[in-house]
């Protein structure tokens, strides 16, 4: 327990050391997460549009078949 407190107090510089690391983690994580979120959203939208396209094609084929 004592070891932990000395570790976290960082020789009385804890108030400067820990915020530095937390801030770094926060900025890097938020960069990564926003990037991933945008990728997921784009991928989902692309999948949706592509499925639409195939439905369109099926309809086209069906219509052709009916006409002939």
């Amino acid at each position: 327990m004592d070891q932990l407190t000395t570790f976290f107090s960082m020789g009385s510089y804890g108030a400067y050391v820990w915020p530095s690391y937390l801030l770094t983690a926060a900025v890097m994580l938020s960069l990564l997460l926003t990037t991933l979120q945008r990728l997921r959203r784009n991928q989902a939208e692309l999948a949706e549009l592509e499925s639409l396209k195939t439905v369109d094609k099926q309809q086209e084929l069906q219509e052709k078949a009916v006409r002939s």
């Binding site: 960082m10 009385s12 804890g14």
Partner: peptide
């Protein structure tokens, strides 16, 4: 000189 603060 800088103690633990050097870890920054």
């Amino acid at each position: 000189q800088q103690g633990e603060s050097v870890r920054i």
